[in-house]
Design a protein around this nucleic acid. Structure first.
Lengths: 190, 190
DNA sequence: CTTATATGAGATGATATTGTATCATGCCAT
DNA sequence: ATGGCATGATACAATATCATCTCATATAAG
């Protein structure tokens, strides 16, 4: 059972690591308004803290995505719901983008690959429903969605757009782009 | 005038830092097949090497973007050309995404902000030409383009798609999305 | 052949961070 | 009040990395 202090440290670590991926235990403890010794007492080591944080990120994202998918009747709706929901949870995983140590952690990378694989399945299902351009490689579509999630998550964190606005815009942007043209079809726009 | 050795070190640093943002001078020197002392001789310090690398990235990106823009007759064409060209140069700046130390470097962050600002100007000009959805905030459009560049650059580096294919797909994806629908208009797809 | 220069290997000192241990303090329950 | 417990501050050792220095070697120019 995670204590209040534990939660405060985890939250602080998330915040600090987003800004400074190489943050020391000192800085994390300071952000959490907690002594450095407490961090080492509750988490075995810095790596342990990072690992806990990484597992949390994966759990939260999985859960949010699963809940979102459960509400949808079609794969396309599920895709939209998942994208919107995951964007809402970006604060929980955003630090992973720059967390060097975790990019070498087997468990984390495997979980991330699994999530991308599940996303690919969802994309494939939506494609079968006829809502995804058939000429685009699935890997490309997945990269686009993943990239859009990271980018708009960062934009929200920076304050460039609000989270609610981003959640309203992201699906439309991914699906129909930013073009003002209404019937562009499959050309590359040239 | 940068020596051959200098170039080898810079190239090696780019490669290593993409994989491991916290790479030590030892690792960089090893990748460059060069003694560690040589790195310190040619660049004053690790920070100096990083700064040189960062400046290089900005210079190359600026130059590539300027050349691309020069070939275009309209802002929309310029936007397309710039996006395609910058994607092609992603290997030169990709390490910046995880380079912790440089995210605190005034010169680098200012330059990056300037580039985003220039991109915003280009987007605004394209919008005046009627090619960008008028209801989308410019900040959002810029975030989308920036995110797409980072994401597809990463996908190319990972080998998920080829560079040429990515360069063919990115403009179409940004402009008209991944939807199979031909006349979706401005709704959010619900 | 000799000299100058660049290099690689390694020693060395300085510094920062991790992780452990100790001790005093404040708080809570009994 | 008092005993137990979590905490914060601090000291400490261990380690890693940076940065400098020295020296031997190789390579090219004269």
């Amino acid at each position: 059972m995670p204590s209040i202090t534990e939660e405060r440290i985890l939250d602080a670590a998330r915040r600090v690591l987003c800004v400074n991926a190489g943050a020391t235990v000192d800085e994390i403890a300071a952000e959490a308004q907690v002594g450095r010794a407490t961090v080492f007492r509750l988490f075995k080591s810095r790596a342990g803290l990072l690992r806990t944080l990484g597992r949390r990120a994966i759990l939260v994202t999985d859960q949010v995505a699963a809940e979102a998918a459960a509400t949808a009747a079609t794969a396309t709706e599920a895709l939209k719901a998942v994208i919107t929901a995951v964007l809402g949870a970006s604060e929980h995983y955003r630090f992973l983008g720059t967390a060097v140590e975790l990019s070498e952690d087997e468990e984390i990378t495997r979980a991330y690959d699994r999530q991308l694989s599940e996303l690919a399945d969802l994309v494939a299902a939506a494609r079968r429903e006829g809502s995804i351009r058939p000429d685009l490689p699935t890997a490309w579509v997945v990269a686009v969605i993943d990239g859009q999630l990271w980018a708009t998550g960062a934009a929200v964190a920076k304050g460039a757009v609000g989270l609610l606005q981003a959640q309203e815009l992201i699906w439309g942007t991914i699906m129909t782009g930013i073009s003002a043209g209404k019937a562009i079809g499959y050309t590359n726009g040239e």
